[in-house]
Design a binder for these strands. Sequence first.
DNA 1: CGCAGAATTGATACATCTCAAGCTGGGTGG
DNA 2: CCACCCAGCTTGAGATGTATCAATTCTGCG
Lengths: 248, 248
Amino acid sequence: MLLKEKPAGFHDCEECPIRHRAVCARCEADELEMLEGIKYYRSYEAGQRIIWSGDRMEFVGSVVSGIASLTQTMEDGRTQMVGLLLPSDFVGRPGRSTAAYDVVATTDLVMCCFRKKPFEQMMETTPHIAQRLLQMTLDELDAAREWMLVLGRKTAREKIASLLAIIGRRDAALHMARADGMVTFDLPLTREAMADYLGLTLETVSRQISALKKDGVIQLEGKRHVIVPDMDRLMEEAGDDSDGGLLN
Amino acid sequence: MLLKEKPAGFHDCEECPIRHRAVCARCEADELEMLEGIKYYRSYEAGQRIIWSGDRMEFVGSVVSGIASLTQTMEDGRTQMVGLLLPSDFVGRPGRSTAAYDVVATTDLVMCCFRKKPFEQMMETTPHIAQRLLQMTLDELDAAREWMLVLGRKTAREKIASLLAIIGRRDAALHMARADGMVTFDLPLTREAMADYLGLTLETVSRQISALKKDGVIQLEGKRHVIVPDMDRLMEEAGDDSDGGLLN
DNA sequence: CGCAGAATTGATACATCTCAAGCTGGGTGG
DNA sequence: CCACCCAGCTTGAGATGTATCAATTCTGCG
C-alpha cells in the first residue's frame, strides 16, 4: 500500500503501552527481538477501512491505540458488528489467507502489524505466542457468546444498558472508579455503530438512550459523554445479575 | 498404563471415530499414549445436564458421539443457546476453574474426558495439543460471530433457514449429497431448543417451519425428518450468498 | 452564516410475542 | 387391545416492541 511516515514514539517493544496484554505478553526479551524484526506500525484515520472481508491478508497484528470494529455485511446491506477491537486486541487469523470480516477504524488508530508468513513460523517455534493467542481467543469466544445472549434475548433497553455497562466497566477498571462510585466515559461509537452492534436501528438506540436518561439511569453531557451515577442500577437495567455476569 | 475397566467399544485412540478431528488430531503415537493415561469415557442420556454454569470443572473433553448444547440463562429464565456441540467438539476451558455455561446432552451422548490438571500440564509440554485447540477455538469464534449476524439481523424465516442450512450442510458433507442434489436429515433439536438457539419463541419457530414447507423450500416426514429438494434455494432463504457464507 | 453529518422525536406499519386452544403420535396401564 | 395421557407441536387472535418513514433540531466547522 502507500508508504506512510512511521509514527514517532514507539518502536521499542519494551516500552509499548500494550506490552503486557497483547499477543506478545508472555514473550521473553529474545523473543521480542525476533518480533521486532517482522513488525511495522501503521496508522489509520477514523472511518478508514483497515481490511475488507474477502481480501487477502498480508499481515496480522495488534491494536496499539484507538478502537476498531469487526463487522459482517449481508448482500442487501444489513450489517452486524461482531466485535469491538480495543488496544491490545489481536487482528487476523493465522493459518487463513483471506479476511472473514470487514475491519474499520472507529477512531484514529495505530496498529502493530506482523508480516503474516514469518509470524506464522514464529508461532510454530515460540510456544509463548501460541499460548497467549489461545488465551486471548478463548476470551474473545466468551465475549462473543455473552453477546449472543444480548442479541438473542434482551430487549432494546437492556441491550443499550448492556453496552453502556460493558464500556463503563472497562473504563472504570482503567481510570479507577471515582470515590462516589460514579462512572464517567465517552462513547466511542456513533448511534449508528451502536445500532449495528446491538442489532437495532439507530432510531431505537436514540429513543432508549433518551429513556434511560429520563429515568435517571444515566446522565448525558453533549451527545457522547455519559455519566453513570449508579453502576449497579445500570447492571440491573442490563438484566445481568449484580455479580458481574461476564467472566470469572 | 494402569488398567481400568472401560466401556466396550473404544478404548484405543487409534480407532477412535473422532481421532482425526478432535483436540488430539495432531498427536503422534507417543502423545496419544500419554493422553490414554488421563482419559476416561462417560455416557449421558438425552436431556441430562453434563455441566452446570458456575460449577467447578474437574475435566475437559471431547464429544465422541451425540449432540450437546451450550446455553446461558438469565435470572428471569430467558435462555440463549450459544453453541451446539457435535462429535469432536471440545468442552471446557483449560485454565479456568468454573464453567461459564450450562452444557446439556441433547441426544444420548458419549464424552471422552481428560482429567483437567494433567491435561493442562500436557498442553504446556505438547505443542500439538495447544496448536489444535487454538485452531478449533478460532473456528468456534468464527461460528459464534456468524451466529451473531443471524441473531442480530435476520428475520425469523431467515433464522430458521440458516439453522436448517447449517445442519443440512454438515449432513451433506458427512453422508455425501445424493445424486439428485437432495439433502435429507433428522433435526436433532426440539422446536423449543431451536427457538433457544435462534432467539425466537417456539411458536414462531413452528410457524416459520410450516411456512417454509408450504412454500416448498423444505418437506417434512413426521416432525423431525427434513428433506431439502434444493439446497441453493434454502441458502437463498437464509440470506447467505450462494458461495457458502460461513468460512473459506 | 450556512451547510452537513449526527441525533432526536413523531406517527404509523409490521414482525414477533403472548396467551390460549387443539392436535398428534407413541407409550402405558387397565 | 383399547383408552388415555402427555410431551411435543401446530394454529389462531390479539397485544406489543421495534422498524420504517419523515420531519426537525442539534453540533461542529469551513
